[in-house]
Design a protein around this nucleic acid. Structure first.
Lengths: 383, 383
DNA sequence: ATCAGCTATTGAGACGTCTCAATATTGAAT
DNA sequence: ATTCAATATTGAGACGTCTCAATAGCTGAT
């Protein structure tokens, strides 16, 4: 294929002139411009600046250009500058696809933040999380590719993305017991790092997690401090690791102070407002109704509040209410909640993932963070 | 570089045997396996199946393999089958990076759904939208890359993604007047399609939009039907095209029935719950307070409801309330809203975008959809 | 049997980058 | 001046795919 230099020589003009002519060239002698355009046409050349062109212009080998652009310490400063200048003048941009082919890297990380058409998986926390992950990725010269996972055989989608080299690895969240994705990715040797995992039995993969159990204990203790003893729990149906851990934290904290929890102080719900409201109703019709409702995420607290508002029960005078995850709406509604250090988690997780990808796993590839209690008016009414 | 065939020949085994040995090979004669592994080691070969290997196994040229895999009609069915079988046996996966380099396509579309750290841009509608866009992309063998745009010089980020060939084009939303992204992308000849744009003066780019003006008119007329005359408007500060259009729709509908709108029937707010609540309060303290509050998105309606609940005003008995965008929470709270055909828009937009990318723009590259009124109890109390 | 006119397959090269091994240049020490 | 050891640069080739131009194979008509 013809190069810019070829065109320039054939048209008997300097390379830069040829470049100008092909680039926009309005400030150029029309005759010369015409000649260059014609020559390019003859040679079937279309302008696209590569490292080759930089090499031609700077008068060095193309290998040198690559080294210089990548700040290799091999290259003498003067040479590097010559190369950078030429690159600048020609408006060069790296072709990332070519680099990817050569280096066998995509520079892209996959994340599936939505399970197809399952509203109960909607989760503001994860929205904020993926936002932070994206920021972390971009800081490290990577990009995030988002994709959908079907309800069935989600692991196949992950497998495919890796095997076609679309992504170098994954950030995954919402890990379940016996998650087929974990099995598949491990079997393939595909790099990934999970948000969550400490509550799986013997996790052997890379993850960052927040100690939900101690988070819930903090909430229980706060309510106890306020003089509550009849504390109800509104939580998701058992079967997801972090949900179970939160429930376990509740039981442990209660039994630590010697409170027996009757069955009707616990209500299970989907992660959907209507269900949560119904569950709150159920809770309040217990034999000895709770004076405080501890919800294991904010959405449930919103559902509960909606029920309580509807029947005229005042928060916190009649019932105290707490959420979990510190959704911005919790602040607006004045609901006590638990904040997780999403930002740090995202950064850490990305570093862990890069370690996995580079085959040099971090020493600490399973990291646990601790949450923080945010007290608001929904619990500010001591008994 | 050595190929799988080379290894097989050197170790004097059939290709498939060599493959088995290198792949997992537990069902193989250990001695043979060892020999193959050793040979591979000598040749510095590591297993990675390419079209070349398929060609070797099927006994055809590598060009034939490429054609066959891409369902070219040039290839005889029998040959194609031979190729597919070989690909199957070897567990072949296309290397998408190599294809991209060769075809000069990324197969990736960029979308920035978050403006960095600006909570007032949080928007559930866009979350649902990007979900649908992703589905549309995957149906068409593309993927979505999500990235962050800074508050300043967002257009540079777009430019960069295109110029390094990371993406083929963009879906953009939240278009503003004199949006620098539009200017930049147009100047670069970068393909994009916008969600929104019909309310810009003389838009010359590809877009799909929903007629917000007529949506608001539907709401006003519905409220008029219910006997309301004092209808207040809660909307964002002027300056964004679709917000302004919604306000214009309100004015037109009101003046169409001869109602004079006093200034204090209109309150401007940020897209933030606390501000919306404050604005609702302001509205209700008008000289002749409205009997219905029309909000130009759902979040504002939630803020307004929160204020009304707090001061004990009943919905709809004391005040009617409407939202816009049909957030799932609106359904839960029973708030009348306006639904936009997000799904169809996403599909359409993607087709339009592909047209732009392929240099064969759709005949209809500016498409307008119409919204649908969803009546709920928040307006079901005729006067 | 030959040939024209198909259709099917082949083989080579290009996409733009990186990187290894080989060569050239430099500088310091003799 | 010469030599040796760094240091700097070069040049070629490979990554895996697609696609063009060239060749081979086939069919049916002469």
């Amino acid at each position: 294929m013809a190069t810019l230099k070829d065109v320039a020589q054939r048209a008997s003009v300097p390379m830069l002139t040829a470049f100008e002519a092909l680039n926009n060239g309005h400030a150029l002698d029309p005759e010369i411009r015409q000649r260059v355009l014609q020559t390019a046409d003859q040679l079937n050349y279309s302008l696209k600046i590569t490292q080759n062109d930089i090499a031609d212009l700077a008068g060095v080998a193309k290998g040198t250009v690559s080294y210089a652009l990548n700040n290799s310490s091999l290259i003498k400063p003067a040479t590097r500058q010559k190369v950078l200048d030429a690159a600048q003048v020609l408006g060069y941009h790296l072709n990332i696809t070519a680099r990817n082919l050569r280096t066998n890297r995509a520079g892209v990380i996959g994340y599936s933040w939505h399970v197809a058409d399952d509203p109960s998986r909607m989760n503001n926390l994860l929205d904020r999380f993926i936002y932070r992950v994206t920021a972390a990725a971009e800081k490290r010269n990577h990009h995030m590719l988002t994709f959908l996972q079907p309800q069935e055989n989600a692991d196949r989608v992950y497998e495919n993305l890796i095997s076609i080299s679309r992504v170098d690895g994954f950030i995954i969240s919402d890990v379940s017991y016996n998650d087929p994705r974990l099995a598949r990715l491990s079997a393939m040797g595909a790099p990934f790092a999970a948000f969550g995992g400490m509550y799986l039995p013997a996790p052997d993969f890379a993850f960052a997690d927040v100690d939900s159990k101690s988070g819930v204990k903090m909430v229980v203790n706060h309510l106890l401090d306020q003089g509550h003893e009849r504390i109800g729990l509104l939580t998701r149906h058992p079967g997801m690791p972090f949900g179970d851990a939160r429930e376990a934290g509740y039981h442990e904290a209660m039994s630590a102070v010697g409170i027996d929890v009757p069955k009707d102080w616990i209500a299970y719900t989907l992660n959907v407002l209507t269900d949560a409201a119904a569950a709150a109703q159920q809770l309040m019709s217990a034999k000895h109704p709770p004076t405080a409702i501890l919800c294991t995420n904010d959405l449930m607290a919103f559902g509960a509040k909606s029920y309580l508002d509807g029947v005229g029960m005042r928060i916190p005078q009649d019932v105290a209410l707490t959420g979990y995850d510190d959704d911005p709406t919790s602040e607006f509604l004045g609901i006590t909640s638990v904040r997780q250090p999403i930002d740090e988690i995202a950064e850490m997780l990305f570093d862990i993932l890069l370690g996995e990808i580079n085959g040099e796993p971090c020493a600490e590839r399973q990291v646990i963070f601790y949450p923080e209690l945010v007290v608001r008016q929904s619990t500010e009414f001591p008994r």
